[in-house]
């Protein structure tokens, strides 16, 4: 490990100490910390980006929003996030994160719901990558298979059934004048909140032992299955039953709906 990350961490811990000093001593100028931190810049640009990117009533240029979004991401990655051990891991992580986040934003920003689904699928791929990076191999594959493969496809089916024309009027607008700014502000606040709380979190539990024995064991699947059907046996059984119930329920609803529609059609034709 080279010293740059260490210095960063010291800076991080130094920030923590400074924060503690601030809280103890009320006379100092503690506000400068927040005012000049990259977090504020990221938050502000992020808010602007979201507001500008989200669907508008008229087809307007998204360029400014895209620029602001890029800026926000850069600030976030560069200023708020903590550098990792090696440069390669750093770049991989950043790439995956960027993919995830950008496709998520695009999913939310595009008017057409079908594009939304596709962008979402891309975001899922990014998430799978991130999970893989964490060492949750099974889950990354499961995400791709189940989520992107089954759920998103089902969504697409339903979209085609219900709204084949593509995007409608209501896809372009929201349901109030205050929704976009308010949501953007709330989003920024939440991110800022998390960022504040992070330096003060406790260290890892030492009694948990070496990661290589547990979550990062080479026999990942064996260990995964071991824990799943050992410690969480009941839960998995219930999950299975839940899936069955959901299946049956979905079918039942459709049948019921079909009956109702038939009755209503008859009633209308009788009049």
């Amino acid at each position: 490990m080279n010293g740059a990350p260490a210095s960063w961490c010291f800076v991080l811990m130094g920030q923590q100490q400074a924060a503690a000093e601030l809280l103890a001593d009320s006379g100092r100028s503690g506000g400068a910390n927040l005012a000049t931190s990259p977090l504020l810049g990221a938050a502000v640009t992020g808010i602007a980006a979201l507001i500008l990117l989200l669907p508008r009533a008229t087809r307007a240029s998204r360029r400014v929003g895209a620029v602001m979004g890029t800026l926000s991401l850069l600030l976030l990655f560069g200023g708020v996030m903590v550098p990792l051990a090696g440069m390669s891991s750093q770049i991989v992580f950043w790439a995956l994160a960027a993919v995830t986040i950008v496709s998520a934003v695009a999913a939310v920003a595009t008017p057409s719901p079908i594009y939304t689904a596709i962008w979402f699928a891309l975001s899922l791929l990014g998430t799978a990558g991130l999970l893989l990076y964490q060492g949750a191999q099974f889950l990354s594959v499961a995400t791709v298979a189940v989520y992107a493969g089954a759920i998103v496809v089902t969504f697409l089916f339903v979209l085609m059934l219900a709204q084949p024309e593509g995007h409608e009027v209501y896809d372009r607008v929201s349901w109030g004048w205050y929704t976009k700014p308010m949501s953007a502000v709330v989003a920024a606040l939440l991110v800022a909140l998390l960022s504040f709380s992070l330096p003060a979190m406790p260290g890892p539990a030492a009694r948990m032992g070496d990661r290589a024995d547990q979550v990062l064991h080479p026999d990942h699947m064996a260990r995964f299955g071991d824990t799943l059907f050992g410690k969480h046996l009941l839960s998995i059984e219930i999950a299975g039953a839940l899936l069955l119930v959901a299946l049956v329920g979905a079918i039942a609803i459709m049948i019921q709906a079909g009956h109702l529609r038939a009755e209503r059609a008859e009633g209308q034709s009788d009049e």
Partner: peptide
């Protein structure tokens, strides 16, 4: 942080969009 950003983007989308899907 990434998880939080994803979460809030999803939250924003949920609040803004009117299409059920």
């Amino acid at each position: 942080l990434v998880g939080m950003v994803l979460f809030v983007i999803g939250m924003t989308g949920f609040l803004i969009r009117r299409n059920l899907i």
